[in-house]
């Protein structure tokens, strides 16, 4: 009986380890520094996590579908630069849909290559990382992009505004998380993504249009990237060409931290949101207890490996790998 309970706790820890870790972190930091759980601090953390968080939502779809998307960082730079540039030429009302259209077109191209042509997603998106960076530089002429009249535009509302005291980026992130969470967990399309990522061949044999499903996961990812670009542009009203550089791997790390398997077929939006928040709160918590910003990188490294390790250890029933 005692053993059973132990096994139960162990199993729970392994399954929900990331949640447990999250709670422990929160409690620990809260005890160490009261400011940590102050509402404005929490808002601050979520707001600064929102841009990467929005991208992580999209990448979750791609990863559950059994693929990778390494182009999101570069694509996000593209969206940011494009919307800033078009803001001054077309005006904000037209610039936003135009930027979304262009970003979705890039997503569709990747979706076509990976979904319909069945090319390896790692290499395709690696290539697109470089290609889109080229597009961005072409668009901007290599210069930083700034809005001419920073005071007089309503465009800043997405990044800087707030409704009832809640910052806009949090509202947008939350709204998107709820909508995409419902799409993934409750709709037939969501179910098909899990099937395609879990066992693509079985999905085909069940009459699921695998190529189309993969295509749409990249469209969703592109939509999220466009939203992130909008938030970034609106917050800073000016940007470098490389604003999203390196985000692709950071975002992927958040998704994996949330428990999505790189093999596809598992993961949820809720878990990804937890992954995003852990990133944000660890950084914030460590700063508040007086540690330097780079300590978070090291801590997150350990957390990621521990999380994935415990997950697969629970599945194989032993802690250490069977590799000879």
């Amino acid at each position: 009986m005692a053993e059973l309970t132990k096994k139960g706790i162990g199993g729970f820890l392994a399954r929900q380890g990331i949640l447990v870790a999250f709670v422990l972190f929160m409690v620990g930091f809260a005890l160490a520094n009261q400011r940590f759980i102050a509402i404005d601090n929490i808002f601050g953390v979520i707001r600064s996590s929102a841009i990467l968080g929005v991208m992580a939502l999209g990448v979750t779809f791609v990863v559950i579908g059994g693929n990778l998307d390494l182009s999101v960082g570069s694509m996000m730079s593209f969206s940011t630069i494009v919307v800033l540039d078009l803001h001054d030429t077309l005006g904000p009302t037209l610039a936003i849909p135009a930027m979304f259209g262009l970003t979705l077109a890039l997503g569709a191209f990747i979706g076509f290559l990976v979904g319909y042509l069945k090319l390896n997603s790692l290499i395709v998106t690696l290539g697109m990382l470089s290609a889109i960076h080229g597009l961005t530089l072409t668009w901007s002429g290599g210069q930083n992009m700034d809005i001419a009249d920073k005071q007089g535009t309503w465009f800043s509302v997405f990044g800087q505004g707030s409704i009832a005291g809640v910052p806009m980026p949090i509202i947008i992130f939350g709204l998107l998380a709820v909508v995409l969470g419902l799409v993934l967990s409750k709709t037939p399309f969501g179910r098909k993504i899990y099937a395609v990522g879990g066992n693509g061949q079985a999905a085909t044999f069940s009459g699921i249009p695998r190529a189309r499903v993969v295509f749409f996961t990249y469209l969703i990812s592109a939509f999220c990237v466009a939203t992130a670009g909008l938030l970034q542009a609106s917050r800073s009203l000016g940007s470098q060409n490389t604003v999203g550089q390196g985000y692709e791997l950071e975002v992927l790390a958040m998704v994996i931290l949330g428990g999505a398997s790189l093999l596809g077929g598992s993961g949820t939006i809720v878990k990804t949101v937890i992954g995003v928040l852990i990133f944000g709160f660890i950084e914030n918590g460590l700063l508040l207890v007086g540690l330097e910003f780079y300590v978070q990188d090291v801590v997150i490294w350990l957390v990621i490996i521990l999380a994935v390790w415990l997950d697969i250890a629970a599945k194989r029933g032993r802690l250490w790998s069977p590799i000879a």
Partner: peptide, 17 residues
């Protein structure tokens, strides 16, 4: 070697670390 975690994930983590 010891954890059996995929090298992609391990080195993604250590890239940050």
């Amino acid at each position: 070697w010891k954890t059996g975690v995929d090298a992609f994930i391990v080195t993604l983590g250590s890239m940050l670390g």
